[in-house]
């Protein structure tokens, strides 16, 4: 079973000097936090804020390559969680076939946002991630931990 997720925001994690992409389902019942690096967070932040930099970013280029050959991004799916690493797949329609390509979730999400494609995750992944621990962590966040991403 797949659950559709939306990107609810980006948080800075000062303890790990990394960013957290927060994915939530429509009813805000499930949450999936994915830790990503600064440049990966930047790629997602640009898409969320619909910022168009003067020159194409790496993910703008990815989208532009796919557009040029009439390949369509169908969806991005967070497929697995193993040893604290999330795995994703990008599903594409090209020619008259469907393709799926292995990817990091950050790239899959950055591309999906640019292609207006839905983001999904499996129940298995939602179950695996220990939300309790995260909720405790989130409760301890101070307001100043939230803010705009520095790019």
């Amino acid at each position: 079973m797949l659950t559709q997720m939306k990107v609810r925001g980006l948080l800075f994690d000062p303890y790990n000097n990394a960013y957290i992409v927060i994915l939530r389902d429509e009813h805000c019942a499930d949450m999936l936090p994915i830790w990503v690096g600064k440049s990966e967070a930047g790629a997602i932040s640009f898409a969320l804020e619909q910022v168009s930099p003067p020159r194409p970013t790496t993910h703008d280029l990815l989208k532009s390559i796919l557009d040029n050959v009439d390949a369509k991004v169908l969806s991005a799916v967070v497929t697995d969680l193993k040893d604290n690493t999330y795995y994703a797949k990008i599903h594409l329609w090209y020619g008259d076939s469907e393709y799926s390509v292995d990817s990091r979730p950050s790239d899959a999400i950055a591309l999906a946002l640019r292609a207006d494609a839905p983001i999904f995750t499996s129940e298995d992944v939602l179950r695996k991630q220990s939300s309790e621990e995260l909720e405790r962590w989130l409760e301890n966040l101070k307001p100043e931990d939230f803010g705009k991403l520095e790019t």
Binding site: L62, I65, Y94, S103
Partner: peptide, 14 residues
């Protein structure tokens, strides 16, 4: 895969 590995992999798949 990095973003550029993904780009190369997408090209190869398609």
């Amino acid at each position: 895969p990095t973003s550029h590995d993904l780009m190369a992999s997408l090209a190869a798949h398609l």
